[in-house]
């Protein structure tokens, strides 16, 4: 996975290869199973949805991804303003029915875990922390792009095609 190396950089993307995606799904499945989570979701630090396990049908995962990433980013910024040395890792939101954990998973990803409030917070926190470390390791491991084409897309053409697609989507 090519990843952002700093949180503040702009214009550097995250690239996910198939074997990494499979490994991420396995981690999410493990967390969901052990924590009895109703939803486990991963986004990039900039809010791009990556993968999920659980959740309800029709859930707007694009919007959810942007909000999760923003939530963690805002919490990290708050922590930095209070204490510059604080490396903020996890946000816990306790509710009547559900608890939500939002955790940094390395420099590229953010993990959300939603569990029933009856689940022991300490146990889930351990699982979230372990899962975050595993996700970070997946993204930081040197993966070779297997079977990917060598040449890039015909860009002049692609830019036009994307512009034309937008025109077609536009109604009214």
């Amino acid at each position: 996975m090519g990843t952002e190396t700093q949180h503040d950089d702009v214009g550097k993307g995250v690239v996910l290869y198939p074997q990494q995606e499979r490994a991420i799904h396995a981690v999410l499945e493990e967390i969901a199973s052990k924590a009895a989570a109703s939803l486990v979701l991963v986004t990039t630090h900039t809010g791009h949805f990556v993968a999920s396990n659980g959740g309800r049908a029709g859930m707007d995962i694009a919007a959810l991804g942007s909000l999760i990433a923003a939530d963690l980013a805002a919490s990290q910024q708050i922590a930095r303003l209070i204490d510059e040395t604080e490396a903020y890792q996890m946000v816990l939101r306790e509710g009547d029915r559900i608890n939500m954990f939002v955790s940094e998973a390395g420099p590229a990803l953010v993990l959300l875990v939603v569990v029933p409030s009856a689940e022991p917070v300490g146990w889930v926190r351990i699982l979230v922390r372990e899962g975050s470390h595993k996700l970070a390791a997946i993204t930081q491991a040197p993966f070779e792009p297997i079977g990917e084409p060598d040449s890039p897309a015909p860009q002049g053409e692609l830019a036009d095609l994307i512009g034309n697609a937008l025109d077609k989507l536009w109604t009214g």
Binding site: A153, L158, I162
Partner: peptide
């Protein structure tokens, strides 16, 4: 969008 795609041309898969 056209400008972004043109700039990112090397990273977009074939």
């Amino acid at each position: 969008l056209e400008r972004v795609v043109t700039r990112l041309r090397k990273e977009i898969p074939a």
